[in-house]
């Protein structure tokens, strides 16, 4: 019976190690990705097409555009939900966001890098130490049919392309939706007697910041679909390959007309994100399963040879 107890313990340890490694998650990144699902048939050009209900959405918080003048500090759209599908030839993105008013100047845009050079998310503006590339912007506005296919490489360089490759369609519905966003408030700090507490060094009144996730019901939702071929013949276009992770950024304008006559958001005053990623699901490569099976057979064969040698008393 020599070897049995240590054999059991060894097996238990091996099993524990295997279990730990098996269950060990890969290093995850705090990066949000739009999963563009591979579908059969034509990609939907209609924002209300039923297929969109079967595609999982990725939600991106939006920031007021504070990066360059003219800035804005409060925007209507606090977050945007994005879905994507492709059929290896065409790709479609559905943007969905709450906007309580339907206005002619309501607009949305997608942005991509063009070529291999990195481009700054703010219209591909020049970078001091890195040679950047241009961006490709797909722009939709509710009072204009279709979409504008544009390029920019720096502020003031936005230009419509000669070859327009993008389609877009938006539908606004007065349906109720719940919007969740972070709300921050500064609350003056008070002592037990209700008196304002001041910084002992500077004499400044002290505040406590309260951050909470607020859920609001908003009536009014825009759904906007952008469609384009995955690859085009236009060198000014961003080109997409399934399985890769191109950068994507979003912008939304609430074109509501204020009493002053100005638009609530227009031009550089908009809700934005910086770069995130999307991934067009690659077609299934069945050879992968075959290679996995071959690996199982080879490993089992090696095991067999080792055990055979061990049983014959020859160390492997």
């Amino acid at each position: 019976m020599r070897g049995a107890p240590s054999g059991r313990a060894l097996a238990a340890l091996l099993a524990a190690t295997v279990g730990l490694l098996w269950g060990a998650p890969v290093l995850s990144q705090e990066t949000v990705v739009v999963r563009v699902k591979l579908i059969q048939g034509e990609v939907p050009t209609d924002p209300t097409a039923p297929i969109w209900n079967t595609i999982p959405a990725t939600e991106f918080p939006m920031s007021p555009q504070v990066h360059w003048p003219k800035r804005i500090l409060q925007v209507t759209v606090k977050s945007i939900r994005v879905r994507g599908v492709h059929n290896t030839k065409h790709i479609a993105f559905l943007l969905e966001y709450a906007d309580p008013t339907r206005d002619p100047a309501d607009a949305a845009a997608l942005e991509f890098m063009v070529g291999d050079k990195k481009a700054h998310f703010a219209h591909g503006q020049p970078m001091a130490q890195v040679e950047g590339g241009p961006v490709n912007i797909w722009y939709w506005r509710s009072d204009t049919p279709g979409a504008a296919d544009m390029n920019a490489q720096g502020f003031g360089t936005l230009k419509k392309q000669a070859q327009q490759d993008v389609q877009a369609k938006g539908v606004w519905k007065d349906e109720k939706t719940k919007v969740r966003f972070k709300e921050r408030k500064l609350i003056p700090r008070k002592d037990a007697q209700g008196q304002a507490v001041k910084d002992p060094k500077t004499g400044d009144p002290l505040f406590d910041e309260e951050t909470k996730v607020v859920e609001q019901e908003v009536t009014g939702v825009w759904r906007v679909v952008f469609v384009r071929a995955l690859t085009t013949s236009d060198p000014n276009d961003a080109q997409f390959q399934p399985g890769t992770f191109p950068n994507i950024a979003f912008a939304v304008w609430d074109g509501k007309k204020l009493e002053s006559g100005d638009l609530k958001e227009s031009g550089s005053q908009k809700a934005v994100t910086s770069w995130w990623y999307f991934n067009a699901e690659p077609p299934t490569n069945y050879a992968i399963y075959l290679y996995g099976l071959i690996a199982v057979v080879v490993a089992a064969g090696v095991e067999y040879v080792i055990i055979r040698k061990v049983k014959k008393g020859q160390p492997a």
């Binding site: 097996a11 091996l14 099993a15 295997v18 098996w22 890969v26 995850s28 990144q29 990066t31 990705v33 999963r35 399985g243 992770f245 990623y277 991934n279 690659p282 490569n285 992968i288 399963y289 290679y291 996995g292 099976l293 071959i294 690996a295 199982v296 057979v297 080879v298 490993a299 089992a300 095991e303 055990i307």
Partner: peptide, 23 residues
Amino acid sequence: VLVLVPLLVGWQTYSELVPSSQP
């Protein structure tokens, strides 16, 4: 152990080849 080891090798091979879902 004898069953798991080849299966793990197969799984590892599959995992290495399958397109990554992480950026």
